[in-house]
Write a protein that binds this DNA or RNA. Sequence first.
RNA 1: GGCCCGUUCGUCUAGGGGUUAGGACGCAUCCCUUUCACGGAUGAAACACGGGUUCGAUUCCCGUACGGGCUACCA
Length: 528
Amino acid sequence: MIKIVKPNPTHRAVREPALKQPAKRMSVRVRFAPSPTGALHIGGVRTALYNYLFARKNGGTFILRIEDTDQNRYVPGAEQYIIEALKWTHLIPDEGVGFGGDLGPYRQSDRKEIYQKYARELVRLGHAYYAFDTPEALEGLRAGEANFTYNFRTRTGLSNSLTLSADAVQQHLDAGTPCVIRLKVEPEQAIRIEDLIRGEVVFQSNELDDKVLLKADGMPTYHLANIVDDHLMGITHVIRGEEWLPSTAHHVLLYRGFGWEDTMPKFAHLPLILKPEGNGKLSKRDGAKFGIPVFPLAWAGQTAEDSFPGFRETGFLPEATVNFLALLGWHPGGEQEIFSMDELAQAFSIEHIGKSGARFDYEKAKWFNQRYIQAADNRALATSIRPLAEAKGYRSDEEFLVRSAALMKERVTFLPDFVEQGYYLFEPVRTYDNEMIGKKWNPALQPHFEALIEHVEAQTTFEASALEESLKEFMHGRSLKAGDILPLLRLALAGTMKGPAVFDMAAVLGKTETVRRLQTALAYFLGA
RNA sequence: GGCCCGUUCGUCUAGGGGUUAGGACGCAUCCCUUUCACGGAUGAAACACGGGUUCGAUUCCCGUACGGGCUACCA
């Protein structure tokens, strides 16, 4: 693997192109670049996953860059949330905020001066210009004409360094008049993009507006920051959501303007994740609407409306979450459904990413989780169950949890189900299935049941198969059918007809507890 | 409105000029099991529509419809 060492970009002269190596000889470098405006949406996790898998597949580098250039939308804690979410899903960046790396800083608010320098450079090169129009003035224009755009047609009648005299511009700059820097889009150009997922996409520059590159507060917009950073960080492939496709033409113009087109990254625009029902892309509000998590981790916002449950808290295993997400919009062909992270990385290719939006299928997500729980090691499950048991004040010793996990793993969907559906392994029966008791119990059974309790009490070993053998012998001796006694035994131990094999439950519960439950149940049966 | 993207079972998808259009989730039935699950088997279920091109289109091209995204000094 050839590692290209680059000098610190902040010390580099602006006009020098940073990277001259042909793209094909560079090792793959991809970035996940979320904005810390709140909890990371599950779609964002999928974007991170695809970037991660692409990097892994190609022996490349996966970078986390925080795009916090909008000071108004900054949400405290969001950055930490993003990092924690990536860790939970095992999408560990090789470089980035919180992960080191030589091409930082990786937080855009820490790179403000860099963008300003490049923005001015683009003005000098004639591909950008200062604009002094106030936001209010532009709003007024939009109010008058709904389709108003700041472009090659309208800019000649507006207040900017293209229409003002050099002196007037200098005066404004000296006086510190608030201004932005805009991209100067030249008309009559066709901009072709070779998208790795969609093929050729063509835009006409006449349709494009003169995007703001540097805002009046000195911060760059996404468009400028993204190009400057991708270039300085040596990004080879931009894998991002489809919502960015329309602005990619502007991005290409920026690469051209800076003279970086020969090292421009390749683009791959991912299809969106759609709502479970109805139209449109999955949004955070859909979580409450459909009663499903749409975030990897729970998020506690300022208000109840801004607080959301997460996959983790719902009881999803990270591996199942990743597997589910990976197949939402991508499939390698073939008939395999269950993939480990290594297998995903091995099988991954951008060519197999679908073009159309993928509906968020929660039933499928549940199925994956169930499969992963079934396949999980009992001891690993015990570790996951322990905090849940402790939270309820249940016993949580290793061996007991391991045995409980073994009994319940094939009938749960989520981690908390172990202590909720299977609560009777941890605490006495809360409610009995009266309908079933009505069907199975009759007073004539009382002496047999009493004898059963004695019989159980007399057991020397308390292991499932021995117990089963012994009880079957007991029933045979009294001419009782399994159907006469076993359902009642189950009801006594669990209160419900659902659950693990009775003898397994008895063994896990232990003799003392089993006898106690039989006694309690008998009293209940007699009273019922 | 304008620009851009998309459309195979209900859902996620495989496939690709000639296939009984394959798999998975979900659903239904059956088997296993004196519980519930797991597992196994079977079944119902799809190429949006209209024109081309072609001996032949679900597959290629063009329209239409429908869906989606973008259209900020947000990302």
